[in-house]
Amino acid sequence: MPQARLDARTLFISDIHLGSKDCKAEFLLHLLKRVDVKKLYLVGDIVDFWAMKRQIFWPAPHHQVIQQILSMARNGVEVIYIPGNHDEVMRKYRHPDVASIRIQRQAIHTTADKKRLLVLHGDVFDAETCHSKLLSFVGDHLYDFLLWLNRQTHRVRNLFGHNYWSLSAYVKSQIGKAEEVIGHYRAAALRETNKRGLDGIVCGHIHHPELVESDKLLYANTGDWVENCTALFESHEGELSLMNYTLSDAKPARFSRRRQRSYNNAA
């Protein structure tokens, strides 16, 4: 039985990390084939050139994700690509239309209910938040091991018919230092939003999906497709929803909305 189409005004995704062994390209491809949107924002780290410098890894699903995005652009979806730090080589391309995709450093998105949102990857806040040290409390090698363990856990769960669950994201959530750095990052993003006189910000970069309101400012982090498999949707009425997409492409898709919390003290 065919699955129902997903209809939205805008889709925001980031931190796909195509070219990395940890990318969950199959989940994203399944989502992109089901969704009908007018505008698609690619909010950085779409292709992981850092990982590909270490080892060339480009399986069919990674190529198919790129082809699906290009197909969407050719068929009338407005695609805006905002490169991140892992694909910063693309930042030098400023032509307004490359393969029907617009490449730019940042954007101001106006929602259907007239809210103005700053859209950028988020590595610009590294100097303020020491995000480069986000994983220093466990060490780069231990984090790589966590991602490897995450892949093995996913394979075993898949064999037994269980949905995807991120072991690495769970471990990070249990470490207080990670929450502290995430809070600093959120606060820096909200300060920039306030300084520009905008209503909110959409970013990625730190692989921690969130949709919260602080002092009447909206903070939306799209998450990633390495650990969390999350995307931000805007409805035709302007409502934003952060959802995860973590079932096998052979099964009916399921979306769940993330719980919203207030972080007034963080800003």
Rank of each mutant, 00 (worst) to 15 (best):
V77S: 07
K39F: 01
A99D: 13
K114S: 12
H121G: 02
E78K: 15
I103P: 04
V98Y: 11
K92W: 05
I56H: 06
T111F: 08
G84C: 12
G139Y: 04
D97G: 01
H121V: 05
V138M: 15
D113W: 01
G44S: 10
K133Q: 10
V77R: 07
A99P: 00
P83T: 08
V79C: 08
L134R: 02
H62Y: 01
V89T: 12
E88T: 11
S136W: 05
L142P: 00
D140T: 14
C130E: 14
H62T: 03
Q64G: 01
Y143I: 01
Y143M: 13
W58Q: 06
L120M: 13
H141G: 06
K133A: 12
H141I: 06
A60R: 13
L70P: 00
A73V: 02
H95S: 14
H121F: 04
N85H: 10
N75A: 11
Q106L: 13
T110K: 14
F125H: 06
I101R: 07
V79R: 10
V37W: 01
G139P: 05
L118P: 03
D113L: 01
S132T: 07
P83G: 09
P59H: 09
I108T: 11
R102A: 11
H121C: 05
K39A: 04
V79S: 12
K114F: 09
I101L: 11
Q68S: 12
Q55M: 12
H121T: 05
R116H: 14
V98E: 07
M52C: 04
V77T: 15
K133H: 08
E78M: 09
S132H: 12
I108N: 10
L120D: 00
I103E: 10
A73S: 14
D97M: 12
K92N: 10
D140W: 10
D113C: 12
K114H: 11
F49E: 05
Q106D: 10
A51K: 13
T111E: 07
V47A: 09
G122S: 06
T111A: 13
F57S: 04
V47I: 15
L142T: 10
H109N: 10
S132G: 08
N85A: 08
H86S: 11
K133I: 00
K39G: 04
I82K: 05
K53P: 00
S71M: 02
D113H: 08
A112V: 05
I80C: 14
V138Q: 07
V43H: 02
I69F: 07
I80H: 09
G84N: 09
Q67F: 04
D126V: 04
F125E: 09
